[in-house]
Every structure is written in C-alpha cells, then in structure tokens.
C-alpha cells in the first residue's frame, strides 16, 4: 500500500510518497511560518485544497449535504469513512447545532473518530437546505482536527472568513473554486 500525503509546501503542489509503516512527523512549521508585527508566529499553511471543494451541489436533505462534505475529507485523505458516519451521528444526537453563522454549517466529529490529517472541505449548495427550527444553510465547512489544540489556526481562519457578512456572501455565491481558495488560504486582507 502506498500512502500519499500532501507536502506542507502545497504551494508547489508537490507530493511526498511514503511507504506503509513509515511514521513521519512534519517539523516544518518553523520553515513555513513568518512572524507578525506583534512577534507572533503565523503559519502560512494552506488549510484547503481545490479537490476538497464542491460548488453548485444539489441536495435536499441535510444528511446528504453533510455526507458530501465528509466524503470530500475522505477523498482528500483527511479522514477515514468512520469520521463521516460520526459527523452525521452527532447531528442526529445533538440537533442542528452545527450552524456557526447564518447559512453556514461546520459539521465535524472528534479526532478519534478517524482523522488522518488536519484540514477542511467546503460545499456550496445550489439552494438552502432546511435544518430544523426554521434554520437553513447553504455552505458547509467540514472540519478535521487532530486534537483539541492543534487546529486553532484552522478555526482562526474559518472565524476570519465568517466574521464578515461580506465574505459569507462571497462564499454563498461563489461560482469558481479559486474564489473559495482565496478566501481560506490567503492572508487576512483587513482587520475584522
């Protein structure tokens, strides 16, 4: 079996090929980070890849939409299929709590439910889907986190995108992959 991991320098879209049994920890954070004017280290990691985005998706039930969103994480090597089942199970058990902003849902499960690598997937639906109690969503951001601390930079990025009504509109109405990639992978253009 060959495991293909995306190299952290995804900028060049290069791939590292690892053979089975090799356990590799990437210690490249320092190499791929810069210091902000406040002296904090900022990772220039990209959290989203084009293959993890689907636009103009038709779905009538929330469960279908969440499954599509989770399958993108599977296809891009972020999670095992068990993770997708856990995402759906959690919503059944806890209700439509995954709405993080108007029209935006962030389905996820726990790291131990089958996360391989951290990252997100993005699904933009053709039309809003009802999600109980008069709520609806059009955008899904699937989250795969390795533990409860290491994913902070991903959450910061998502927060940055959804903190402004303008960027939520850009997400909802995106027609091209690069519009979504730019929102999530580029540095903050303005203070929120």
């Amino acid at each position: 079996m060959e495991i293909i991991l995306s190299c952290p320098c995804v900028r060049n879209n290069c791939k590292l090929f690892l053979t089975q049994g090799q356990h590799i920890m990437f210690k490249l954070e320092r190499a791929y980070s810069t210091k902000s004017n406040k002296g904090e280290r900022i990772l220039n990691r990209r959290i989203l890849e084009e293959q993890a985005i689907l636009l103009d998706v038709t779905a009538t039930e929330w469960e279908d939409a969440v499954r599509i969103c989770g399958d993108l994480l599977v296809q891009t090597g972020k999670v095992e299929t068990t993770y997708v089942e856990a995402m759906i199970r959690n919503i059944h058990e806890l209700g439509p709590y995954i709405l993080i902003a108007p029209s935006v849902a962030m389905p996820h499960a726990r790291p131990e439910d089958g996360v391989i690598q951290e990252g997100i997937s993005v699904v933009v639906l053709k039309e809003e889907i009802a999600f109980g109690n008069g709520k609806e969503f059009k955008v899904l951001i699937g989250l795969a986190a390795l533990n409860s601390k290491s994913h902070i930079y991903i959450l910061q990025k998502i927060a940055e995108v959804i903190s402004q009504a303008k960027s939520i509109e850009r997400l909802k109405n995106a027609t091209r992959y690069d519009e979504i990639l730019r929102l999530f992978n580029e540095k903050e253009e303005h203070d929120s």
Partner: peptide, 10 residues
Amino acid sequence: CGMGFGSSMM
C-alpha cells in the same frame, strides 16, 4: 458547543 472544541473554541 456539541463537542467542546469546534465552534465553542471559535
């Protein structure tokens, strides 16, 4: 939040 480390962390 539902699991205590996703949206609650945000």
